Simulated assay, not measured.
Amino acid sequence: MPWDRTKSRTREEIRPDETVRLPYADRAEAGRVLAERLVPLGLEGAAVLALPRGGVPVGHEIARRLDAPLDVLVTRKIGYPPQPELGVGAIAEGGSPVFDAGLLDRLGLTEDDLADTVAAERAELDRRVAAYRGGRPLPETSGRPVVVVDDGLATGGTARAAVRALRERGPSRLVLAVPVGAAETVARLEPEVDVLVVPAAPWDFRAVGQWYRNFDQLSDRDVIGWLERAGRTAGPDNGPR
């Protein structure tokens, strides 16, 4: 069931859904599990926006089940320059950078210190937007439900940047759907969206890939292929646009 934002939770109350069998076989199976939890929400007319690369095969299954258009919302992690794999923030297309203020303080950094890193990530973000969508703009999201999809939540930085960028575009309902996420991260993201659907939120979370048997790295070509398949299998008004 979707997480109910109106209730506070203790550590014991935040636990994996016992009906979910982990690990997932692959991202497609995870997408099918998510889709069944989204159907009862009444998301007619929704747009499904997947975070590439890993969120796209998950989103493909959801879009097919909801008979909804699938597209991507491109995000980029902002890394700590001496250790780029350490994310200190993230940026999503159409949005402003979102930083982890506490982590910046601990590292003795300001947002201005990361200006060059942000510029480089913006350039890579623009490259990926061009590769995935060409000249197509993001689907219209104002006044309609939007489902944001990823394959997992570790720190949640890119998901937070994505939903904040979309909130500014005025969706009627903002849903974040993820197959598995670290319990602490899930709790922190609840206030950011209208509905948060996470079938499994384990406390012993080390990496997204540990919850999948098949967790292959995806390429830009893979993402484009999933989007093309969505366009071929959807109805005339439901292809990527």
Rank of each mutant, 00 (worst) to 15 (best):
D4A: 09
T6Q: 13
K7P: 01
R9V: 14
T10N: 13
T10C: 10
E12L: 15
I14K: 04
P16M: 03
P16H: 05
E18V: 15
V20I: 14
R21I: 15
P23G: 07
P23Y: 03
A25W: 10
A25K: 14
A25R: 15
E29F: 06
R32W: 08
V33Y: 12
A35C: 08
G42E: 08
E44G: 14
G45W: 12
A46G: 07
L49C: 07
L49S: 05
A50L: 08
A50W: 09
R53Q: 09
G55V: 03
V58Y: 07
H60Q: 12
I62F: 00
A63M: 08
R64Q: 12
R65I: 06
L66P: 02
L66G: 07
D67C: 13
A68E: 11
P69N: 11
L70P: 09
L70K: 07
L73D: 07
L73Q: 03
T75Y: 03
G79I: 09
G79Y: 11
Y80A: 05
Y80R: 10
Y80D: 07
P82F: 11
P82N: 06
Q83V: 14
P84W: 00
E85C: 02
E85W: 04
V88H: 03
V88G: 06
G94R: 09
G95R: 08
P97D: 06
F99P: 08
D105H: 14
R106M: 11
G108E: 02
L109V: 09
T110R: 14
E111W: 03
D112N: 10
D113K: 11
L114V: 07
A115W: 05
T117F: 08
T117H: 04
E121V: 02
A123D: 12
A123Y: 05
E124R: 10
E124W: 05
V129D: 00
V129C: 01
A130T: 12
Y132Q: 00
P137R: 06
P137Q: 06
P137D: 10
P139N: 04
P139G: 03
S142Q: 15
P145C: 08
P145T: 09
V147S: 00
V147Q: 01
V148I: 12
D150K: 00
A154R: 03
A162E: 04
R164C: 03
A165V: 07
R167M: 07
R167Y: 12
R167F: 09
E168C: 06
G170I: 04
S172A: 15
R173Y: 11
V175C: 02
L176N: 04
A182E: 10
E184S: 13
E184G: 09
E184T: 09
E184N: 08
T185N: 03
R188N: 10
E190A: 15
P191L: 13
P191D: 13
E192P: 04
V193G: 05
V193H: 06
D194E: 12
V195Y: 01
V197S: 00
V198Q: 01
V198D: 05
A201T: 14
A201E: 13
D204Q: 12
F205V: 07
F205A: 03
R206A: 11
R206S: 12
V208G: 01
G209H: 02
Q210L: 10
Q210S: 09
Q210Y: 08
W211R: 01
Q217D: 14
L218F: 05
D220I: 07
D220E: 14
V223M: 05
I224M: 10
W226D: 14
E228D: 14
E228K: 11
T233M: 14
A234D: 11
P236E: 01
P236C: 07
D237Y: 13
P240R: 00
R241C: 00
